[in-house]
Design a protein around this nucleic acid. Structure first.
Lengths: 214, 214
DNA sequence: TCCCGGTTGGACCAGACCGTCCAAACGGCT
DNA sequence: AGCCGTTTGGACGGTCTGGTCCAACCGGGA
């Protein structure tokens, strides 16, 4: 359970199970996904799941870790290279495009799990809280990079701005998945970026009216 | 099912069931709440539930409508009177205080349901989407009132600003419930209000640095 | 070749699940 | 009192649930 399978075959099986479980949990919810569902989807047998994960709780933990790694990998890759407003806007466009492609379905796997499990299980809440912390670090790194490049004022509160950006992501994704329309996410992220720009050391000529309609 | 019980006694029973179910669903999730759980919590018998709601799906519908009415009632009451920045900030403080009191637990009942059910059931997603639309109307009304009082520019895009505010609410609540700390909500709402103020017709002396740290 | 830990399949269990059913009790009528 | 639709209680059935158990299988090392 705690440790990874020693053989390559075992590791492959474990991965297959986690991926199948992650997919099922993402579009049914954790408590609506049965262990038997997972065995069918992963083409595995029940003893394999209990061998590698101990019980269903352990399986859900593995799913959370898997989704956190996916999302944060994606985010970290895009955010690591941000050194200008243009690059930050490319990051925004990538997220909006991803959501638009699936018409909002699913939203953020981590956010969805956090909404469902934070009140139910203290262990899982901790994992999800850690995931958000890591995400904040990635965003905060990008903001620091912007500040180092002279695009944000020295005295700007980067922690607060990071919270604002992550809130816009999560809130926008929730509204987009509920309305099946990427617009709320685009508008929320646009608003966050406009807000960031208001902390530029040389304030732009004048404020820009918000562009998109929600 | 579709219609309300004809007798006062029946209506009382129905209400008791919905309230108990809403409480259970809020802190266990819909699919983790069994009909038998509800019978026990509402001190009702099974036939009563199936008599008034048809099946579990109908019960969940009633729970959504109940939670939407609660949240929107609370919001509409606070937002209807907003005519100045001070009053908007009082609305923000009321929300933050409510969340702080329960250390973030639960978050927004509507948001939590939306995260869990939007991908699962198209009917329920529609109900939740409608709830968000009504919420948007309440926020939009407050913003219009601010504009009518000369606090927002005539050309400000109120629809977009409404989306930004609602995203901040939902995102902030999610982060607060996951971290068991009201700070993210306070910071997100502060950011949204600061953003709104940047659309004031007479821009304030200079931009204000964000106050709280996240 | 034998051995042995890791791996796999699936029957099986006890309890929980949703939903059905029917008979009894209730309560406002006339 | 007598009636009738509404409301109530709870036993029951068939299915699904998480979890256990054990026998078989595999593959590499000696």
């Amino acid at each position: 359970m705690g440790t990874l399978p020693p053989t390559a075959q075992g590791r492959a099986t474990r991965d297959r199970i986690v991926e199948a479980a992650a997919r099922l949990v993402a579009d049914q919810g954790a408590s609506a996904t049965s262990v038997d569902d997972v065995t069918a989807a992963a083409d595995a047998s029940k003893s394999q799941i209990y061998h590698y994960f101990g019980d269903k709780h352990g399986l859900v933990e593995a799913v959370i870790e898997h989704q956190a790694a996916m999302v944060l990998g994606f985010q970290a890759r895009l955010l690591a290279s941000v050194r200008s407003w243009d690059e930050l806007e490319r990051w925004r466009d990538a997220m909006v495009q991803t959501v638009a492609q699936q018409r909002g379905r699913g939203g953020c796997p981590v956010g969805t799990l956090a909404a469902a499990l934070s009140d139910t299980d203290e262990d899982l809440r901790g994992l999800l809280s850690d995931a958000f912390t890591t995400w904040r670090d990635a965003i905060g790194g990008a903001l620091r990079s912007l500040r180092d490049n002279g695009l944000l004022a020295e005295d700007a509160d980067l922690d607060a701005l990071t919270t604002i950006v992550l809130s816009a992501i999560q809130g926008g994704l929730l509204l987009s998945k509920t309305s099946r329309d990427a617009t709320p996410l685009r508008v929320a992220l646009d608003g966050a970026i406009t807000h960031l720009k208001s902390y530029a050391p040389e304030p732009p000529r004048r404020r820009a009216p918000s562009r998109a309609r929600g």
